[in-house]
Write a protein that binds this DNA or RNA. Structure first.
Lengths: 227, 227
DNA sequence: CACATGCTTCGATTACGATCAAACTATGAA
DNA sequence: TTCATAGTTTGATCGTAATCGAAGCATGTG
């Protein structure tokens, strides 16, 4: 009855529909302002403000002030991981909030998870990196091998500069649609950013969906899933 | 605003204190009756009954009828994994439900997570299995190598008979106190059962804590963390 | 300065869900 | 059969928290 951390409090934070909408919106990895989040959640500003204060107090969100704006973002990728896990449970229990339309197909194919690539494209990338020996699982964490280091460098991402941060370089993240892992961590983030920079893909405005151009997808296959 | 599965519903299920207590109690892996869970949650039977119906409808619990008893258990280790993740967040945000007493130290050292060994002892076991090459990470899942197969057989656990079930043989599970992985899946379960059968350890009644005897701990070190 | 924009605080309203006593059903024991 | 135990259903009560209008700050812009 009184053992371990207070799970109910933070689950209750996530369990309010307006707040859940906000958190889901932040799974894109973008930082959003209070007004944007209010719109996203379908509530008025005072309500949103109150919710955001609670989420922040609960350690789920971080805040960055910029001028008269307040940008909120998920506090860590642990938070994102738990949200993704909850989505898995919710999807498994069959209660989809919307019937799966054409938009869902896009989400299933490729989407952004917090800040890295998820969906079919994400898991294929992860699988290839493991199979090619670029990544190695070690003691519960993921290690980028020398071969992997060289490979990502060839793709225009410098791993050593990423390794400095607080966030681990490689981390696996459970994909709720594919039910298998994809690559997270600062490397996951950097790879996705690079994909966007190369113009292979862009985010669908306001959604988590990632739209690959025809050429972008070809290049992705050629340069990231081979060799 | 309306994208993806309904995360709020199931988070709300977990977010009610009485229900959270029940779920936490079930993290021991034991199936418990409605009355036991009522006591555990600190509510009367009618209240518990209502909560349990909701948890079951939400797909978080499974039910096994036995005579006039109803035994409830967590529906899957995905559920356990999410709960463990929430504990991590709650522990991180510092809101411990109880100040860490001597009991918490026991929990930190060894406890049962759903049905397998967690805490320091659990993560050490996992680390050793990885380092010795008994386990290998592959495409997001864990594989028991031939060497590993032989090793666990020597410990009195037959891996091939475990592999048949619906549950994967090996699976990693994030440990909320250690912040690293330990071994779950049917092998994790079998190893822990064997440890209990050998009399090395027993569960503290009603808690998740696992108490090793002095000899049990020595044997654990000698037979599972070496060779 | 005035004026707009972004967000917070206050206060009143409202709705939802947790709670439990009492009555009821079902299974088992004597 | 009668009694006991395990759990459900009903219905009434109560508390908490979500909601938003209106007023209040704070930070920008003309």
């Amino acid at each position: 009855m009184k053992e371990g951390p207070d799970i109910a409090h933070i689950a209750a934070l996530i369990g309010e529909p307006a707040r859940a909408n906000m958190l889901t919106a932040l799974m894109t990895g973008q930082a959003l302002t209070a007004s944007e989040l209010a719109a996203e959640a379908g509530v008025m500003l005072p309500t949103a403000s109150s919710h955001l204060a609670k989420l922040q107090a609960g350690g789920l969100l971080t805040l960055r002030k910029q001028g008269r704006h307040k940008y909120f973002a998920l506090a860590s990728d642990e938070v994102a991981k738990v949200l993704e896990g909850l989505m898995g449970l919710a999807a498994g229990s069959g209660h989809l909030r919307t019937r799966r339309g054409p938009k869902d197909a896009a989400l299933k194919k490729a989407r952004v998870c917090y800040n890295h690539l998820a969906g079919e494209m994400g898991t294929r990338l992860y699988r290839h990196f493991m199979a090619a020996g670029y990544l190695q699982a070690e003691t519960g964490t993921l290690r980028l091998t020398d071969a992997g280091r060289q490979f990502v460098r060839g793709f225009g991402v410098e791993p050593d500069s990423l390794a400095r941060g607080r966030v681990p370089l490689c981390r696996e993240c459970l994909d709720w649609s594919e039910r298998t892992s994809h690559l997270a961590g600062s490397l996951g983030r950097a790879l996705y950013t690079r994909i966007e920079d190369l113009g292979w893909a862009h985010r669908d405005a306001g959604t988590r969906a990632v739209i690959f151009s025809a050429r972008g997808e070809q290049e992705f296959e050629r340069r990231l899933l081979r060799g």
